[in-house]
């Protein structure tokens, strides 16, 4: 928790400097320092600071972003083709996708990746399964979902232990 607060402090300070652009104006710098410390104190007092509140971005996540961007481009082209064709043949379908991730971060990353890929939207997340609405029936390939799930687990270093036991009591 202390480490997360420190990371948040550094991130917010960097954000302030990046947006203001004034590095030599004492008034702006002190106002920025005050607001950064105030925000961290408030978040600390609310008790919501942990590894999920503070985003850790490392090489793995950047690689995952790049892979996601390729997937997004591919499925975007499919959706645009289906939408712009004159007779617009679509076949909406609801499927259940197994969710083997055990940490909250891994589950959210996987569900968000499904939603971010156009053509598939995660509707509801249950204990070990995600309800997915797909625009085309060809998009509900279980192998592709499993591949994406493995990559998402790799990106946030999720153990993928099968059952999601700890989620129950956190709710």
């Amino acid at each position: 928790m202390k480490r997360s607060a420190l990371v948040l402090l550094v991130l917010l300070a960097g954000y302030w400097l990046a947006l203001s652009g004034y590095l030599d104006n004492p008034v702006l710098l002190s106002v920025g320092a005050i607001s950064v410390v105030l925000v961290v104190a408030m978040v600390w007092r609310m008790g919501i600071i942990d590894t999920e509140t503070v985003p850790y971005i490392h090489g793995k996540s950047l690689g995952y972003f790049a892979w996601m961007f390729v997937q997004i481009t591919k499925s975007n082209i499919d959706v645009v083709k289906a939408v712009l064709s004159p007779d617009m043949e679509i076949s909406p379908k609801l499927t259940k996708v197994p969710l083997p991730h055990s940490t909250d971060l891994g589950r959210v990353t996987f569900a968000n990746s499904i939603t971010l890929t156009p053509g598939t939207v995660s509707v509801e997340m249950q204990d070990d399964v995600i309800l997915v609405h797909a625009l085309l029936a060809s998009m509900t390939d279980q192998k592709a979902f499993a591949d994406m799930g493995e990559r998402a687990a790799w990106a946030v270093s999720d153990p993928m232990s099968g059952k999601a036991a700890p989620q129950k009591d956190s709710k």
Binding site: I72, V79, P118
Partner: peptide, 14 residues
């Protein structure tokens, strides 16, 4: 509605 969601996703992402 559920299919419109996907079209909105095209705008929002790519």
């Amino acid at each position: 509605f559920y299919t419109r969601m996907h079209a909105a996703g095209v705008t929002d992402t790519l």
